[in-house]
Amino acid sequence: MAGRKILNRQGINKTAIRLVVTAVIMFGFGFSLVPLYDVLCEVTGLNGKTGVISRQEAKSPGELHEDRLVKVQFVTNVAVGLPWRFKALEKELFVRPGKLTFTNFQATNLSQSSVAGSAVPSVAPSIASRYFNKTDCFCFVVQSLDPNQTKIMPVAFVVDSKIPDNVDVVTLSYTFFKTEEKI
């Protein structure tokens, strides 16, 4: 580096510091994508996240479409590592948009120890998830099952009457995951 004396030391340091700061900001940006993604999913219904409303809201529907029915299908999955059997007691329902509907799921613990699990819901097509709201769901809390216990678990939901006309079938899927902590 024994070289030119007129090296612009100050300028070099300034550029370098600015670039390091940019790199640090971009590292933070990577993490800020996490909440950003959640917001985006909520707005677009991407990812099939379902909404929660109170019973009060559910009982005061906008306009009821007397002649319209939407088919709601139920899909159940159990993630690896959870020794449960899990099924929907009704495979599908025809529901009237705006009307509060009830259905039941059933989970059985196949193991000889008590196990806790939590269910993650998802709605397809994603456009429908914005119009799919629940007032009660077993997925709101962690479920714990004793050895060989079978439990009936209710869900109450409303398909919003504003759901687009081209959506005739909505699939609600639940995946049960093993939960380590007992809440």
């Binding site: 670039l19 940019t22 790199a23 640090v24 900001i25 971009m26 590292f27 933070g28 940006f29 990577g30 993490f31 994508l33 996490v34």
Partner: peptide, 14 residues
């Protein structure tokens, strides 16, 4: 490089 590699570093840290 400066704009994208830190994002990868963040992702693998997660």
């Amino acid at each position: 490089l400066i704009a994208s590699l830190p994002v990868l570093a963040g992702a693998v840290t997660m």
